[in-house]
Design a protein around this nucleic acid. Structure first.
Lengths: 139, 139
DNA sequence: GCAATCCTGTTGGCATACAAACGAAAAGGT
DNA sequence: ACCTTTTCGTTTGTATGCCAACAGGATTGC
């Protein structure tokens, strides 16, 4: 008497994560079309922490070296950040917000918070808190 | 007396989702190096539902037309799926598992379930169930 | 002081993802 | 029958996201 194993895709964490992420990205793109989620994360961390080396910036935004480079390049092209060599360490590239980048983040920060709220909207306040706690533990 | 608004990146759902997804993908790649998560999802749905049109396959795996095409192309190149024209509807391309694809999914299905379990490992059984329920409601 | 190691940024390659635009085929309405 | 609308698959373009390999600079061990 053995139960035949079934693989229900809809019940797998990975699939659920992907679907929820898709919904979140849709909400984000509608609300903040100027930049992407990862670009916004970079603006947020530069705003909170000040200028950082490119690799350090990658660490605080959870992107590896190759990824953060692409993001920084595109933000530079848009004039939202700028890079300068670090005199202390000639390997390092310091990334900082431009006036335009500072202004954009200031103007869109509240929208950013609203996007998170909207993503969690189907849940009650208690459920939202629980979800965030559980997700944080899976990090 | 107004509270200055802060944007704590680490507390935003989108950022948490991205980090948890990163951890999940790492676990998956180690356990099943032959295919990616999305490719595995395609194999799972073809295994569960039988041959499907390419677009239909995209819907049951949550991928848009452009994405599912790339995934099917790569799986075809690996000999895990094959496509054939649908005589009923000349626009349609029927995608089905090859013997090799069927065998691979059968051999890796349990591992797939173990990957989900490993991803959720930091949580208790009750917390795991709760998380899945909450995520499903955000779909 | 110097060799082994580590860190930083860059590049190339592969694999999602989605938008937009397109042609061909099917379905529906009148 | 005919026209409009959908659906299906394709292609192009942009943006993550990771790995692996690399070069040059900084650090550490000895």
């Amino acid at each position: 008497m053995e139960t035949p194993l079934k693989y229900a895709l809809e019940d797998q964490v990975g699939f659920l994560l992907r679907r929820v992420t898709q919904r979140h990205l849709t909400i984000f793109n509608e609300a903040i079309p100027e930049v992407t989620t990862t670009q916004f994360a970079v603006l947020a961390q530069l705003s909170a922490l000040g200028p950082l080396s490119q690799n350090h910036l990658g660490r605080v935004t959870a992107m590896d070296g190759a990824t953060i480079k692409g993001v920084v390049d595109r933000l530079t092209r848009q004039g939202l950040v700028e890079t300068s060599p670090d005199p202390e360490d000639r390997r390092r590239l310091t990334v900082s917000l431009t006036a335009e980048g500072t202004a954009l983040f200031a103007a869109r920060m509240e929208t950013g918070l609203a996007i998170s709220a909207r993503t969690l909207d189907p849940l009650t306040a208690a459920e939202q808190a629980q979800l965030l706690t559980l997700l944080a533990r899976l990090t």
